[in-house]
Design a protein around this nucleic acid. Sequence first.
DNA 1: GCCGTAGTACGGTGGTTATCGTACGAGCGC
DNA 2: GCGCTCGTACGATAACCACCGTACTACGGC
Lengths: 123, 123
Amino acid sequence: MPTDTTSPGAVPGSRALAHPAREEIRLAGVLHALADPMRLRVVCRLAAAEGELNCADIELPVSKSTCTHHFRVLREHGVIEQFYRGTAKMNRLRTADLETLFPGLIDGVLRAADLQACRLGEE
Amino acid sequence: MPTDTTSPGAVPGSRALAHPAREEIRLAGVLHALADPMRLRVVCRLAAAEGELNCADIELPVSKSTCTHHFRVLREHGVIEQFYRGTAKMNRLRTADLETLFPGLIDGVLRAADLQACRLGEE
DNA sequence: GCCGTAGTACGGTGGTTATCGTACGAGCGC
DNA sequence: GCGCTCGTACGATAACCACCGTACTACGGC
């Protein structure tokens, strides 16, 4: 059932990554993926960047392997899309899919995250 | 730091339940609380009821003790408010608090849950 | 071909969670 | 008081999760 696509932007010949198809994305899964401060931060950065971002560009205060883990959770629950470009792994929010399935949800979460960051002395 | 209140509507003499104060509620906690199908269902029911609901009125396909557990998670993360009335335990969404902290968030989640329920041949 | 950089895979650890069953406590009605 | 209903507390279990380190693979440049 997992549908993988060699995403547009991926260099041909790169290994493919499994992504859930749009109709396989579940609300509970998305909420679970967002319910972790580390992952929430990733999503905020991606949203702010409005495009694709290298894994390494989003510095997290955890080890490389934990980092890989969080990105995988986000991908497997349909929140982000990942593909390889050379040695780098690029990440992009699945804005269109999420907006179609759950209109306004991600925006709401991002706004809430911003508000909370302000309330608690930034960061 | 946990602030408990004998909620308005509680019968005096009832045991009190600990609730987080508004400023203690965290986005990640709320998302975590919502990231479970069982709890999501509870929240939807409460929202539809637009008022307080008995624990037993929200039938869940799990045992009584598991039920207690889920309600506690929702309360401890600031999503619902609970108080005793006689032998019954009443539940109410903390709509005002959540709307102040994260405007639009709960509505977004509820709308998303509705849409998904429709998409997957209802419930 | 060799090296560096980016990320993965694997195995492990400690903590949390969802679930249950059984035994108990608190009010209500008779 | 007695029994009913509603919910709790406790103990157990199995699954899962966040995190780590180490060993590995893939690609690009020299």
